[in-house]
Design a protein around this nucleic acid. Structure first.
Lengths: 194, 194
DNA sequence: GCCAAGTTGAACGGTAGTGTTCAAGTTACG
DNA sequence: CGTAACTTGAACACTACCGTTCAACTTGGC
């Protein structure tokens, strides 16, 4: 068995460091979209030079962080059962992923400042589609209102989740209350009739 | 009659320039919270040195811009008749001020990056109160739900307005549609009954 | 018309971030 | 154990922004 063309083996500690750097990047960037490379390296308890050894530029790091957090989101969403009543499905989705989705949005914002828009959209399109399709299904089944475009309902959900995350970060909202506040608000907003 | 202690007269063109600088600052900062002084000066069609002649530092400029946009908001809100059915009042408020409020929020965000938090809160407290009181009145009169705290309902409104502004800026939402989308969404979210 | 008030670009020093190089040190792993 | 892979801080050049100074210029207002 011949080994793949690219070097297939990195030393274990190096691989571990890459992991730590990505975690730190997601964490830092979702707090401050303008977080510096030094800041991220420090958070990862790694020298700045080491970081540049793994990522050629800040932009590359941001893109990797975005890719990572979106992949996490994909994985989480893929593991959820979103069949059944769309209202219940939405509750499940919110309860189990509002924080991650809010975090993704924050990193995504960081990415928009330094990555070409089409690249950002390309990475973000797939995960966003999952939420969007749930909402469209709810519309088709008559439990979500159709007098407003699905794209707006999706957008509103994102804004509310992101806003809740900000409120939690600033202490205005208790972390444990957030899922309920989001669900109650969004489901009411989505209801038909009115 | 002795003249006031401070020089009461600035040359007309200088005063005019201050005005242009503030307008440019609000405009630039609401687009990019990290807008540079050069950028703002250029947008105001004024030399950078001139700007520093009127504002001692970037922070001072940001604070002045925030004060100005919040004052505009105060003025606009003060001119509205928000008595009567809180739902109608909220519709009126949204239709006539969503953009300004969103803009204020954006500048406020810019301010938070460079001003002491208590100063920001101090400036922002009064205008925010007006919206908050309308919502509390709606709750008291039984037309807005009370199973969620008023502070969250207020917060959600802000998040939705801000989000809509972002969507408009990115072309996802037509500017003319925004007030309707916001009103329909928020009023549905606020409704009593479950 | 005069002059003070105001504007302007150029230039300067200071700070902070990015990305690179280097030489010395540490450590995973065969 | 030995070596190649990896890490690290110091130092460097580069860029961008802030805030200031200065000398020349324009313009408002009496």
């Amino acid at each position: 068995m011949t080994r793949p063309l690219a070097k297939p083996t990195r030393r274990a500690d190096a691989q571990h460091n890459v992991e730590r750097i990505l975690e730190a990047a997601v964490s830092c960037l979702s707090r401050d979209p303008d977080a510096s490379v030094s800041e991220i390296a420090q958070a990862a308890r790694v020298g700045r030079v080491t970081l540049y050894g793994h990522f050629p530029s800040r932009d590359a790091l941001v893109e990797a962080a975005l890719t990572r957090v979106l992949a996490e989101g994909e994985e989480l969403l893929a593991g959820l059962d979103l069949t059944g009543d769309p209202r219940d499905a939405l509750r499940v989705l919110i309860r189990s992923s509002w924080l991650l989705i809010a975090q993704s949005s924050a990193v995504l914002e960081a990415a928009q400042a330094s990555l070409p828009p089409e690249r950002v959209h390309e990475l973000h399109a797939e995960p966003a589609r999952r939420v969007d399709q749930l909402i469209r299904r709810g519309q088709d089944e008559g439990v979500f209102r159709t007098d407003l475009p699905a794209s707006w309902l999706t957008s509103a959900l994102h804004h509310i989740m992101k806003g809740a995350a900000v409120d939690v970060a600033s202490g205005q909202v208790d972390r444990a209350d957030a899922p309920r506040l989001i669900s109650e608000t969004v489901l009411a907003a989505y209801r038909v009739d009115g």
